[in-house]
Write a protein that binds this DNA or RNA. Structure first.
Lengths: 224, 224
DNA sequence: CGAATGTTTGACTGGAGTCAATGAGGGTGG
DNA sequence: CCACCCTCATTGACTCCAGTCAAACATTCG
């Protein structure tokens, strides 16, 4: 965002919020009066099915905007939960409209944000629907690592990754056991390492090849 | 949209386009100079994987807006193809920005549209990832039928459905054969009928129950 | 009437799920 | 300081849902 946007955001900003790991931030179906930007920490977006199954929609990284659906549609399509301790920048939903009115371009920015999320979700849908387990997992790590690079939270091909194997399994529609066995294949091939809450990507392009994806450029907002 | 919006859209409108069935309308990765609204006919949104597999993202019904991602992000995340003959209302992408500037609320409308698509895609992701074949197919028919009702293209629990079983299979990440066998289970239970390009929904609530979903209200744009 | 396209069926296979037990660390309280 | 517990990762054995292969049917169309 531009400096003016940041200034606008500052006025819009209500305060900061620090939550512990495991804290629910937004609930599916709710109409939160507040929106958030992630400053520090990581989290999960997910939906629940009536039978208790969970679908992880995405991993939340610093810089991510939370609650946009509630802000736009009046209802969240998924829940958001903190996986680590998180620091959030809090905005007031009721001021979203005045924020847009102050500068029409901001409405465009919001639409752009929403489109980016939709774009990524389309990729995920394709993965869950069409890729095999090993392709899906390789794809997932490529995506995660590229996002971490764009966010600047990676170093030396490694990054903090505080999630559990069950989270990956629920993101890809796989069972925990099968996910574990598939990850160990990739580990035994020296393509990646995972110990504690850190992962190392040893061979990104090999992973991309397995995952049937490319290492294409991250998209930036087009100038109109 | 409000009458003023419609008027604004009219100025924005460039013309009408009629395409035959099978015609590609937008290509994944492209940056189309034009946006469309579907006036008549039906189509498909889909993505291709490098190995040739296809993921159907959604079915296109009258009223759907096409090309929003290209308009906002400069690149389509999926392709769009006409399944029947379609009539499209054509807009000029280069005027999208002036359209928003003329009335800030329009930026909000676009963001809303994008959020609605994202919401639906989250549901699809959950279906493909967590529902079994019969649950997924039941869910799909419920969604399709509810959309057709909202669009006003259904009558007597029946609607035009020009798609193939392969399209459903590709939308749900199932094989054609398994999709066929699962649909025939639902047909033999008298929950739905499908002959030619028409489907009849005989027991919507039973389908919803199987599909682990509810018949909840369609969302309308919130007044801010 | 062949050719093409899409739907149905049956037989068999296999990738992924389920069940269950064992390991490996990290807390914590006696 | 060390048993005990809790959570999560790992393994092995077995099962099953869904995929693959292949052939038979419909329909439509030139």
């Amino acid at each position: 965002m531009t400096p003016e946007d940041v200034a606008g955001m500052q006025r819009f900003k209500v305060g900061e919020l620090v939550v512990d790991s495991g804290t629910p931030i937004l609930m599916e179906g709710s109409n939160s009066p507040q929106l958030f930007t992630t400053l520090h920490g990581m989290g999960l977006r997910y939906r629940h099915l009536e039978n208790g199954e969970r679908q992880v929609i995405n991993f939340v990284f610093p810089g991510d905007f939370l609650g946009l659906q509630a802000g736009l549609m009046g209802e969240m399509g998924h829940s958001v939960e903190a996986t680590t301790k998180m620091t959030l920048c809090v905005f007031d939903r009721s001021e979203l409209w005045s924020f847009i009115k102050a500068d029409p371009e901001r409405g465009f920015e919001l639409a752009w944000l929403s489109a980016v999320e939709e774009h990524f979700m389309g990729e995920s849908l394709t993965t869950v629907g069409q890729r095999t387990a090993i392709q899906a997992i390789a794809w997932m790590f490529v995506r995660i690592y590229l996002r971490s690079e764009a966010t600047g939270i990676s170093e030396n091909n490694a990054m903090r990754f505080p999630f559990k194997q069950k989270d990956i399994a629920d993101a890809l529609g796989l069972s925990l056991v099968h996910t574990n066995k598939t990850i160990s294949i990739l580990k035994s091939r020296q393509l990646l390492g995972w110990s504690g809450d850190e992962i190392q990507i040893h061979d990104l392009s090999a992973l991309a090849k397995i995952g049937l994806t490319t290492l294409g450029k991250p998209k930036t907002r087009p100038i109109m």
